[in-house]
Design a protein around this nucleic acid. Sequence first.
DNA 1: ATTCTAATAT
DNA 2: CATATTAGAA
Length: 318
Amino acid sequence: MREEEEPSWFARFDEDLPAPDELMPLSQSLITRDLAAAFDIPTHAGAGPGGLPSSGAADGAGGQDMNGGGASSAAGSSGGGGGGGNGDEPARTLKRPRLVWTPQLHKRFVDAVAHLGIKNAVPKTIMQLMSVDGLTRENVASHLQKYRLYLKRMQGLGNGGGGGSHSSGSGGTDAATEHLFATGPSPFLPPGRGPAGPDPYNSAPYAPMPAAHHHHHQVHHPQIGHFHHPAARPLGHYGAGPGNGAGFDHGFLSRAVAGGAPVGPPAMHHRMVGAGAAMGMMAPSSFADDLDLGSRGGGGGAVGGRRELTLFPTSGDH
DNA sequence: ATTCTAATAT
DNA sequence: CATATTAGAA
């Protein structure tokens, strides 16, 4: 009996995710390409209902979540096939297909990192915090690298853009972290510096890549702006809620890179001493993370009130 | 043992 | 390009 347990201390920190819709066990297109290709198995072996729009591309028509069914995607056992008999072997050496870091997933990742703090932002913890079934440490580690790279890449260079200004002026601006855009010369900084983050997230559920067509055809979908979301949350999330007995504080999210960033971290290093046992204490605190909204520019109005408070089931811990 | 960084392969 | 995988170091 394992008694590993994680109460829901750090439970609700996510914003919108587990909507019963997107609650799929991260299986994305399972089945390794090797196998599929080797056996000629259509990447989506018979998944019936609710499956993916065969050809369809993701009509982003406003919809954001559209999964419905429970189809959890067939997992590994593709071998079956008919027949019989054989085929047992796979469950072991099976490599999962590339994990497709979908925006939603990314958000989880970023949020997790942002909430964990540079201190605990390590793959293992992140992975656990994400509670995404199927995610492995390597997955997160790999992505973490990219994420960090991305952050670094934009920290000293506050320009860029298409023109290519290499201005070295690292001006001093506290490059602490801000949103930078990748493509498109749009140096618009939100007037007033509001928390408005130009994060065109939420806009592409992206279907499990239709890898059914061999033919290098990288469906260059409108892969929405890639990374965005610098861990620039309002530093210091301390502030135990009212009535909160636990007085935890996180001195995190402050510096991002060492060695160059002019960020002047006030000496605030709280070391969590104590018990070496294992990790097991994280301060949940109430997170009022703001999320980006997607509406700017034209002004139109439109609806949009889409806010969902969902505490994802912190239950999936393996 | 776990993580980080880099290099490399797909 | 985005991920996965591996290797070496800490």
